[in-house]
Design a protein around this nucleic acid. Structure first.
Lengths: 347, 347
DNA sequence: TTGTAGGCGTTATCAC
DNA sequence: GTGATAACGCCTACAA
């Protein structure tokens, strides 16, 4: 009916003088095929320029060597570095990756989930979109036998799933302690949307550190942003720094906001770190190069990426007989003190 | 032989009381099927949680809705922004993207090409790896009927292929003129591997601008780097700035090298821009935030990405009867003057 | 060690 | 409008 397009195993079989099953086995290095036959078959395949059709293999074996990656955006420091590692690790383990950017839209996340299910990917590695607050689409994937690993942005509502995270509460707690240790005592906080667990945890850690240190928690000093972009950071810095009762330090839930906060502060004549200390979550490539350089918190994107792929492949290859044990893996973060909070020892 | 795993059209056919042909047509909104039937079939599909198997469709139709993207690395400014746009545009046009990082390895580029051919992607968008100097693998893809679009890093040796580039020669020429216009007259150049056309062109543009301006072209002031990383930039800056006859400006073929050059210069007490002007190819997110901010050349990654997908899809959907006309599209760049070359008007 | 034949889930050709 | 059935290219149980 349709004309066949490219060289297939039938052609190779004819060329080599064997049946298609022998060809198939030979090409897959099946133990039952003699070395001589394999050589002949492979030679014939090469002669004809045969390229195995992965689609047909996938349909026949009902499995694929493809991993779907759901991520909000590719062009931000942490995520671009995470995806970089994911792809690299997947390649090393024989998998390809389909990248799906949700742009932080719940709707698009669901659409993509359907696409990935339709593509019969072996597994999915996902970082929840900021908007996402229901999780049926993840259940759907799992019902279809697709393994899922969540990274960084997770939810306790998604059960029976490997999760790879940092301890956001503890990290924010320690970050806050660092600022306090530098002699700042009126500390503001710029949060992401707290319906995302990680932002809620960070905020809690911040508040707890203030409490432990006996410092005031001024509700006016806590601001929220949906996307923590550079512009949002500026807007919020403006708001916070125009209050009568100004803070002398600002902790932002990402590093982009920290940078725009610094830029804005300097613009209106507030010195950093002398008058205002600034610390931000997430190390960005430029954190170290800024003037002043920015104190930040490094999330182990490389380790998270590697582990995500390894755990996913582990689960994909797990014996379907026995139940796979899902872990929540918590990785260490690293506080990188730099000039933006360095109030004690002058440069 | 194998047990079927998920709901297929046979199940839906049974549930709806139609044949599989009717079901298939109904689900694809074929005009011949009555509205009533469509409703019934779709209801049945929904009831059963049917998800069409894209693999089977692909095998049957011999086409797929997947685009392969070959790129050296994801975690660099220009490329991460390019891939961001590629994915976004592809999504809008109904395609998924498989991302393949070559890590600038020719070998890996070839391996990935085979994978993409095996996956029967509809097309490939590629940025050549820095190492690549032979192109049979691209011919191979095209022989298999896979459309190819090249972006940014291209080669004249790959024929009959849409190419989307900037005018590297002209851009470097103008960048050099900018430096000269700022009063610098002893200008060094840090190049990437000139076997890549774009680096050769940039170098030519640089040399030509010096010639036109009647400035000396000191061979000692031209250095080459294989990867233009931050570390490489430092190494080369060290080399150039330790010469007896020092330049008073440096033009680097990417922005990362510009940043490390500035950092190194300041470290050894050379003032930027007063003693040394620095300009770099490729705008990075941090170029504007640095101190001093870095004069750079913006490549239109968004436009390039959009155009690449559009042209590729256009070719995929082209009537196979008539020959498709391949274009080389040259997009404008933008020089962004900032402090690092601002020697004339003091800040 | 090799061959035969049926199946994976669709689409498409041809009848009715 | 709808249905039966052969393809798409590969894998594999079973037979030899």
């Amino acid at each position: 009916m349709k004309k066949k397009t490219r060289v297939n195993i039938y052609d190779v079989a004819e060329e080599a003088g064997f049946s298609i099953s022998t060809v198939s086995r030979a090409l897959n290095d099946d133990a039952r095929i003699s070395a001589k036959t394999k050589v002949k078959v492979k030679a014939a395949a090469r002669r004809l320029g045969f390229q195995k059709n992965a689609i047909a293999t996938s349909l026949s074996t009902n499995q694929s060597k493809v991993i779907g990656v759901l991520v909000s955006e590719l062009n931000r420091g942490f995520l671009s570095s995470l995806v970089h590692t994911l792809e690299d690790t997947a390649f090393a383990m024989g998998y390809s990756v389909i990248i799906c950017q949700t742009n932080n839209s719940h709707e698009r996340e669901k659409t993509y989930m359907d696409t990935l299910i339709a593509s019969r990917v072996a597994g999915i590695i996902a970082t929840l979109s900021l908007e996402t607050d229901s999780y049926e689409h993840f259940e759907k994937a799992k019902e279809q036998g697709i393994k899922v690993v969540l990274v960084d942005r997770v939810s306790p509502k998604i059960k029976s799933t490997t999760k790879i995270v940092i301890d956001d509460y503890q990290t924010a707690f320690e970050g806050t302690q660092h600022i306090i240790g530098q002699g700042y005592d009126k500390i503001a906080y710029v949060s992401g949307p707290t319906k995302q667990l990680l932002y809620a945890d960070r905020l809690r850690g911040f508040e707890q550190a203030l409490k432990v240190a006996g410092l005031p928690l001024n509700p006016e000093w806590i601001e929220y942003s949906d996307d923590l972009s550079y512009e949002e950071g500026t807007r919020i810095a403006k708001k916070i720094l125009s209050r009568k009762d100004k803070p002398n330090a600002i902790f932002t839930a990402n590093n982009l906001a920290a940078i725009s906060t610094i830029a804005y502060a300097r613009q209106i004549g507030i010195r950093v770190p002398e008058d205002l200390g600034v610390i931000g979550f997430s190390e960005e490539p430029f954190s170290a190069f800024m003037q002043p350089s920015v104190t930040s918190i490094r999330q182990p994107s490389t380790e998270m990426g590697k582990l995500a792929v390894q755990k996913l492949v582990e689960e994909i290859n797990a014996d379907p007989g026995e139940s796979y044990i899902h872990q929540k893996i918590i990785l260490d973060t690293e506080l990188i003190p730099r000039e933006s909070t360095n109030r004690l020892c002058k440069r």
